[in-house]
């Protein structure tokens, strides 16, 4: 086992993905099925929120992954800018639509949950607003990737956008907090036992979160592999035109 940077070689990366992807995808499906069925059918109803609380098994993991996907893109962008590993740039590119979809799922399930709880589909609550802004950042990032023809330039520019965007996303989060104190309940998960959801809800939730993480990894691996192949095709076509 050499250094982790060996996987920055596209060929090595693809070979590894070919081997691991079935396991990751299988595990993702397994934990999602177990977690969701456990959560939906084998947990008691909350004494205040009734059965609506069960949407937590989609809402919380997708919201977590919406943020984690951006974090992963940030790290990948930094790796690209510092070490210039193409796989890293393409992984960031591959993660963006997945993260955007996670954001949409979090927003939609939040709206569906909010309707019975707060009596409204949407409120300009800080958390909701921050997620909407995060979604806009994803859109801009994806659009910039799509708009630039040269792959390396696109990777460079989107990496800088990702870094600058992260700073502004954090700024926006605090600005939004300042602007409106909200309806949203505190974090569902925290290290403080008092604050936490009860254990009966907690365990299936952890399984669901693991499932979403694995799903995200599987999708990003798959999409990165596709991006590498697409990139190779473009390079070969360009070369053919040249000679």
């Amino acid at each position: 086992m050499g250094s982790i940077w060996e996987y920055a070689n596209p060929k090595k990366f693809i070979a590894t993905v070919d081997r691991v992807l079935p396991f990751v995808a299988g595990l993702a499906v397994l934990s999602l099925v177990v977690g969701l069925i456990w959560g939906f059918f084998f947990t008691p109803e909350d004494y205040r929120q009734g059965s609506t609380v069960k949407i937590i098994y989609l809402h919380v993991p997708s919201a977590l992954m919406a943020i984690n996907a951006w974090m992963m893109m940030l790290v990948a962008s930094l790796v690209w800018l510092i070490r210039r590993h193409h796989v890293s740039a393409l992984a960031a590119r591959a993660a963006a639509p997945v993260g955007a979809v996670m954001t949409v799922i979090a927003l939609l399930t939040g709206a569906i949950w909010g309707q019975p709880m707060w009596g409204t589909w949407w409120a300009w609550d800080p958390r909701l607003t921050s997620f909407l802004i995060l979604f806009l950042f994803y859109l801009g990032y994806i659009a910039l990737w799509a708009a630039i023809e040269n792959d390396d330039t696109a990777a460079d520019l989107t990496s800088v956008l990702c870094i600058v965007g992260s700073v502004f996303a954090v700024l926006s989060r605090y600005a939004v907090n300042f602007w409106n104190q909200g309806l949203h309940q505190g974090a569902s998960l925290s290290l403080d036992k008092e604050e936490n959801v009860a254990d009966v809800f907690y365990h299936p939730l952890l399984v669901c979160i693991a499932g979403f993480i694995l799903l995200f990894i599987a999708l990003v691996l798959l999409r990165t592999r596709t991006e590498i192949r697409a990139r190779r095709t473009r390079a070969l076509l360009a070369r053919e035109r040249m000679t």
Binding site: G140, A143, L171
Partner: peptide
Amino acid sequence: LLSLLVLPLYVPTLIF
């Protein structure tokens, strides 16, 4: 595209 990229970055300034 410029508008799409810049508008989210304007959020903190606009809010404050």
